[in-house]
Amino acid sequence: MCQTCGCGDRESSVNGDLKQINVVQEILHKNTQLAQQNRAYFKSKGVLVLNILSSPGSGKTALIERMLQCSQFRIGAIVGDLETDNDAKRLRSHGVPAVQITTGNICHLEADMIARASKKLNLDALDLLIIENVGNLVCPAAYDLGEDVRIVLLSVTEGEDKPLKYPTLFKTAQVAIVNKIDLAQAVEFNREQAIANIERIAPHATIFAVSAKTGQGMEDWYTYLEQKYRGIGNASFQVKRSSL
């Protein structure tokens, strides 16, 4: 039987009036299918898509703001929050196309929300689409949105043991960014310990230590993004831009 949607032989068995149906279907298969459609669509547009996850207040919006000011990428953003469009407004004030999704009581973004929101953006004019997920280190981990790179962001004020407390999310991320590194000394943050914790929980993840506020460490992050951008089939972001 098909492991994805349960089609094919159903192997029903009858026991009195009761019938057993062996379903074997992924509960989130609808989301997974939509995420795959999103991924194919974004790839056809040559856009690299990032999904940024963190606790509230780790500096997701500040990180995007820094990227707008200093990186060479043309960036669009989709921002998820329970209420208000403050973050999208903040990004729009930099002249960036930003769509706000207000989820109400939903603690995560889903692939269909991204499909609808991305229709409001001109992807042909973008290199990078950044999805700022709802601030939450648990629920968003279960939902593929169709991103190319999943990033977990933690700030130095949250403590070195965050990866140990929220292992599931760290294990699903390809990149971990330690933010607010300019405050490390003030809050007695042990950088080596934090990085060692990430490496033990998520040995596959690429780790960056940055300050979105001062720009410290951002160059390495941009270099990584350029490599990823070429990896989805673009020659380089400058080439795409000059061909427009």
Partner: peptide, 10 residues
């Protein structure tokens, strides 16, 4: 895993 395995119905 996050899946439905089986159902019992009538």
């Amino acid at each position: 895993e996050l899946e439905i395995a089986s159902l019992e119905v009538s």
